[in-house]
């Protein structure tokens, strides 16, 4: 029922989803590309946790930092190697490229590690629960809320106060004109991919943390969630992405407690009904945003 526990868990789930959808929209805002390889950055983060945590003696916090860095680096590399050469081509070419990148990354871990899932070690406190005011909440749920607050604050400052942030907002608005100001196209696009990968990396810690295991297809669900959250919230602004993430988390948890037990396994189907309703009646999402649809040429 709707009590403190529900509220905290909903904010926690919403935080995770907000970070996910924000990462997707950062790239979409500038390139107008729905990056279907985005889920794979979460996967890369997960495998970095597994590899570093299992085969090195690195302390857990360093392992997490390196996992985030790995996701950010792979995101940047995909931009450099795969997306940059096709950037001036059609949007379809970019979309197909993003699928190719996704399949490629999945197969890299399939071949080099395993097709089966691998257990990832997490520090004991990660799965501990906290009890206060009658609510029992896993510590990692509190942790993700805190991290989300910090990340959103930092990103807001970067976007509002730094020249790079201004350039990225301008590029999402009018890409060619931004270049006419002397802002290099590669700079803003690379920055968008690095931020996108960083967010995916942070999410990977908590995503993998729920089951403490990672497999090559683990990126599918986060990609879908990010995509749905942006449809709900709005693809054309960062604010919309964050709103979409939280609304998705809320809807999901509401469905979980309101659906009768016999229907609970159809929760995803109900979720998609909501998405279809959004597409029918408010295709631009909750938050309209001001970005135009200009393509990068």
């Amino acid at each position: 029922m709707i009590d403190l526990e529900f509220i905290i868990n909903t904010i926690s789930l919403g935080s995770l989803y907000a970070l996910l959808s924000l990462g997707l929209v950062f790239v979409y805002g500038i390139l107008k590309l729905v990056n279907f390889a985005y889920g794979e950055y979460v996967m890369v983060g997960g495998y970095a946790l597994y590899v570093i945590g299992t085969f090195t003696g690195m302390p857990w916090y360093m392992t997490m930092v390196f996992a985030v860095l790995a996701a950010a680096f792979v995101s940047y590399m995909t931009e450099l190697v795969a997306f940059r050469p096709v950037r001036t081509k059609s949007l379809t070419a970019m979309l197909v490229t993003s699928f190719a990148v996704s399949v490629f990354l999945q197969n890299v871990v399939l071949i080099t590690i395993s097709s089966r899932s691998r257990a990832v070690r997490f520090p004991a406190f990660f799965s501990r629960t906290l009890e206060f005011a009658g609510a029992t909440v896993p510590l990692r749920n509190i942790l993700i809320i805190g991290i989300t607050i910090v990340l959103l604050t930092v990103l807001t400052i970067v976007m509002k106060r730094t020249v790079l942030g201004m350039a990225m907002r301008a590029a999402a608005d009018r890409f060619t004109t931004t270049r006419l100001m002397g802002v290099p196209a590669n700079l803003v696009i690379s920055a968008a991919f690095i931020i996108s990968g960083t967010l995916a990396g942070v999410v990977s810690i908590f995503w993998v943390g729920r089951s403490a295991s990672v497999d090559p297809l683990i990126g599918m669900a986060p990609l879908l969630i990010a995509f749905i959250a942006t449809v709900i919230g709005g693809m054309h602004s960062l604010v919309g992405a964050v709103i979409g993430g939280f609304v998705y988390g809320l809807l999901f948890n509401l469905l979980s407690i309101m659906l009768p037990a016999s229907l609970i396994s159809y929760r995803d189907a109900f979720m998609f009904v909501i998405v279809i309703l959004f597409l029918l009646f408010r295709p631009e999402g909750i938050w309209r945003g001001g970005y135009t649809e200009e393509r990068v040429g």
Partner: peptide, 9 residues
Amino acid sequence: EGREIFGSL
């Protein structure tokens, strides 16, 4: 042409 101001900035 058309001024191309960054409207959200």
